[in-house]
C-alpha cells in the first residue's frame, strides 16, 4: 500500500473542505477501498474518513420514504430498515458479517461495483441519492462500470427510498467472491413496477424494462415467462457465460416476484 494522510472529520462541512485537497478521497467503511489500496491500484494523497460524522449515520422512515444516512453500515440497515424489509434483506446479505459491520451504503454506491447489491436496491426502488450538493435520481446516478454521477469531492449524505407496496431482492452468488453473479431487485409501486439487475451487465446495474412493463400489467411470476434477456453486453467470465447470466436474470426475476408475494 502506498502511504497517505489520514483525516477523520466530525462534520460534513469539514469533510467537504478536506476533500478539496489535491488527491483527497473519501473513505467510508473501507471494505472496497482498503483492498484496492492493498493491491496498489489507487494512490490517494489523503483519505478523509466519513464514519465519524454523526449526521451521516442512521435509518429513519416517514411518509412512505425510508432514509438511510450515507455512512450507515450494512449491518445497521439490515437491523433497522424494518419499514422496507426487502432493502433490509438486501443489506443483510452484502459481504459477510464483519464486512457488514464496516461497509457503508455511501461507500458502496460511490464505488458502483458492477456486482454490488445496493445499486440494484437503489435503482429498483427509484431512490434518490442525496449529496452535500444536490439530489440525484437513481436513474441518473449510475453511469456504468465503477462510474457514477458524483463529482470529485461530492459526498453521499443520504439515500431516500420510496417504500414500495411489495418488493424482493433475489441474488445468486458468485461462488468465490460471493458478490452477486446476478441479482434482481423487483419493486411494485402504485404507478408501476421497477426491475433492476446487478452483476450481469458489462455496464453495471440496469433496469429490465420489458419485465417492468409485463409486471406492471400483471404482477405474477408467469408474467415474465414469454420474455427473454439478450446476452449481448452481459458479463462472461470464469463463473458464467453471458447466456447463463441472461438466464439467471429471468429466473431471479420470477423468484423475486414470487417472494414479493
Amino acid at each position: 500500500m502506498y502511504d497517505f494522510e489520514f483525516v477523520k472529520v466530525g462534520s460534513l462541512a469539514e469533510a467537504v473542505a478536506a476533500l478539496k485537497a489535491e488527491g483527497a478521497q473519501a473513505l467510508g467503511g473501507g471494505q472496497t477501498l482498503i483492498p484496492t489500496l492493498k493491491q496498489r491500484l489507487a494512490q490517494p494523497a489523503k483519505l478523509v474518513s466519513l464514519t465519524g460524522i454523526a449526521e451521516l449515520v442512521g435509518v429513519s422512515a416517514s411518509d412512505g420514504v425510508l432514509s438511510v444516512g450515507g455512512a450507515t453500515t450494512h449491518a445497521q440497515v439490515a437491523r433497522e430498515a424494518t419499514a422496507y424489509p426487502a432493502l433490509a434483506e438486501l443489506a443483510s446479505h452484502i459481504g459477510d458479517p464483519a464486512v457488514r459491520n464496516r461497509g457503508t451504503i455511501g461507500g458502496s454506491l460511490a464505488n458502483d461495483d458492477p456486482a454490488a447489491d445496493y445499486p440494484a436496491g437503489v435503482l429498483g426502488s427509484g431512490a434518490t441519492v442525496v449529496t452535500n450538493a444536490r439530489e440525484i435520481a437513481a436513474d441518473d446516478f449510475f453511469r456504468g462500470l465503477f462510474e457514477t454521477a458524483l463529482e470529485e469531492g461530492e459526498i453521499i449524505t443520504a439515500v431516500r427510498f420510496p417504500i414500495p407496496q411489495k418488493a424482493s431482492y433475489q441474488r445468486f452468488a458468485q461462488p468465490a467472491s460471493r458478490f452477486a453473479l446476478t441479482g434482481v431487485f423487483v419493486a411494485q409501486y402504485a404507478d408501476g413496477v421497477r426491475v433492476a439487475v446487478t452483476g450481469a451487465s458489462e455496464n453495471g446495474v440496469f433496469r429490465w424494462s420489458d419485465a417492468e412493463a409485463a409486471l406492471s400489467s400483471s404482477f405474477a411470476p408467469e408474467a415474465v415467462d414469454g420474455l427473454s434477456v439478450s446476452p449481448d453486453g452481459l458479463i462472461g467470465d470464469l463463473h458464467g457465460t453471458p447466456e447463463y447470466r441472461a438466464h439467471l436474470v429471468k429466473v431471479l426475476t420470477r423468484r423475486a416476484v414470487a417472494a414479493a408475494g
Binding site: 473513505l27 464514519t51 464483519a98 464496516r102
Partner: peptide
C-alpha cells in the same frame, strides 16, 4: 463490540 476484519481497517480508524 463489533466483529470486524482488522486487515481491512486502518489503525487510525480505530483511534
Amino acid at each position: 463490540g463489533q466483529d470486524v476484519k482488522s486487515c481491512t481497517m486502518l489503525a487510525l480508524e480505530a483511534d
